[in-house]
Amino acid sequence: MTKHSLRDFRENFMKSLFLIGGIGTLLILLLIFAFLFAESFNFFKTYDFWDFLTGTEWKPGASPEMFGLLPLLAGTAAVTVGAIIPAVPVGILSAVYISELAGPKTADILKFAVELSAGIPSVVLGFFGMIHLVPRIQSVFDLTTGQTALTGSIILAIMALPTIISVSEDAISSVPAALKQGSFALGSNHWQTIYKVILPAAVSGISAAVILGIGRAVGETMAVMMVTGNMAIIPGSDIFLSSVRTVTATIALEMGEVAKGTEHYYALFTIGAVLFVITIGINKIAEAVKRKHKQVT
């Protein structure tokens, strides 16, 4: 073999290696995708699509069995919204503090703390919630049980915060120093510079942080399951103080006991598919926000 053909061979070999890797990933993805939707299809052979989408009761054991999506969706929505409302502003403010206001030492310590708290396993947080949060929520609001959407929200907010803080902090720190100097040179103070130049320049990174935080909240299973009581009912106006059951918790709780091939079994895959669609939706929104921002910059 000449030197030349050896090099060609190596190049082709590497190329095919990457190709196989790429195709492999795609295949696995397609397989999961196909599996999820095939199982959902099976579900809709016996259960009306409309009844599933607008059903207000999730009662797998009852006769007839009821598989209404709404209570689960309401549970997920309540817990997620309840987590995001405090986590987003607190997260962004902390990120601003770390990257703009704190001295270098304080910033390093805070960044380390954020990294550490990102590493807390969700079971541990759920356990902490069960022991410390549930009884307090119960006594403060005088409820029969402290396992509520609010409890789940608080735990989720704590879980989403490190993501929101570190991703936003990255975005803020990577705003070019030249922009900051330009703003200062016009006689604006630090607050005006943060509010009118730095945050707008970092908005795409910050919205990515928020979306990632939401994604984390929607997809989180264990910690939420441990503190929300898991009652599949559509809550009323007292939504945050009632027990709820999220989509993910439902799958986790029921998958173990369900018999393969039953309607219930297919129903669980169907709500898995719903979760998949929601996640894709969130990512699309994130992309749209980014694109809209790009038009200005």
Partner: peptide
Amino acid sequence: TGLRKRVGMVFQKANPFPM
């Protein structure tokens, strides 16, 4: 800030804001 309003500055590399 009042001083910087009176003494403006233009930098080596143009630094328009992303607006």
